[in-house]
């Protein structure tokens, strides 16, 4: 049976990894900090997938982002999606060469559908993750989509903003609640209603996870294929490991592997061939 997924999202801004709350960024540290204080190498063995986003608010530094991606991917043996500032097929190719398996596209979904088609044509539909940020508006049960790091509201009805969902260019959707982002209050499942009853693509739900119970609620939802969190500090120490184990011991449909077995594998092989 196809399993559901726990996804960790790393936010990168100008050489630093960030925490985000309602899309306001706070610096956490660079890659060595992440490795030293957060033991990211170990965390990477407890997730089903990793997403790395360049959310730089000022000018992006693609060289620095790709260098960080390359280092992260060298120690992560799960699929990796990367994005932020993808404005050409060439840059998508560069991300894939730096270790990504998929490319995350946000603003291009609305601003540049030809780019989305181009990336799908060259690398396949499964390679494209469409990402939309969502914020509640004043209407009853109303939401708006946002692009460009949450700074621009999409002035289109939901069906039009999502018109790509059946044209074979996008493999899955990353749906992130700006209102819940970084708050630890749990997912906003109301955002799923934006997708309509005929929605076909796998759904990654993001924004609001504060603890393992929130993951469990997300994984139990029939419309959710993957649950994501970008909040490093809600799962410090072996927090993510414990959360995953609790979910596996429950009835979550997650993949199973022996996370600590990785260390033994080198010994298992003996000296390098």
């Amino acid at each position: 049976m196809l399993k559901k997924r726990i996804i960790f999202t790393l936010l990168f801004d100008n050489h630093q990894f960030m925490l985000s709350r309602n899309f306001r960024l706070q610096k956490v540290g660079n890659l060595s900090w992440l490795q030293r204080n957060y033991n990211f190498a170990s965390v990477a063995f407890f997730i089903d997938e990793l997403i790395v986003l360049d959310v730089s608010r000022n000018a992006r530094d693609p060289d620095a982002f790709c260098a960080a991606l390359e280092k992260i991917s060298a120690g992560c043996f799960a699929p990796i999606a990367a994005g932020g500032g993808v404005t050409s097929v060439e840059y998508a190719r560069r991300l894939l060469r730096a270790g990504a398996d998929k490319v995350v596209l946000n603003s291009a979904l609305v601003d540049d559908p030809a780019l989305v088609r181009g990336i799908a044509r060259d690398f396949g539909q499964q390679c494209v993750v469409g990402s939309l940020d969502v914020r509640k508006n004043d209407a009853q049960d109303g939401y708006d989509f946002y692009i460009r790091n949450g700074t621009r509201k999409v002035e289109l009805p939901a069906a039009e903003a999502l018109s790509w969902h059946r044209d074979g260019t996008v493999g899955e959707i990353y749906l992130n609640s700006i209102d819940r982002d970084g708050t630890g209050q749990g997912y906003d499942f109301g955002t799923l209603d934006l997708l309509g009853a005929d929605w076909q693509l796998p759904v990654i739900l993001a924004g609001g996870v504060g603890n393992a119970k929130h993951f469990a609620e997300g994984l139990a939802h029939p419309r959710v294929d993957a649950v994501a969190t970008a909040h490093l500090f809600n799962f410090v120490g072996n927090g993510l490991q414990k959360a995953r184990q609790a979910l596996l011991d429950g009835d979550a449909e997650l993949a199973n592997w022996d996370p600590v077995g990785a260390v033994d594998l080198r010994r298992h092989l003996g000296p390098a061939a």
Binding site: F45, F77, W257, G261, L269
Partner: peptide, 19 residues
């Protein structure tokens, strides 16, 4: 499947092939 993307399950399988 992709052993290089299958966490320790895949790493073990790769090491089995090499052995």
């Amino acid at each position: 499947f992709h052993p290089e993307k299958s966490q320790t399950n895949g790493l073990r399988l790769l090491s089995n092939f090499l052995a």
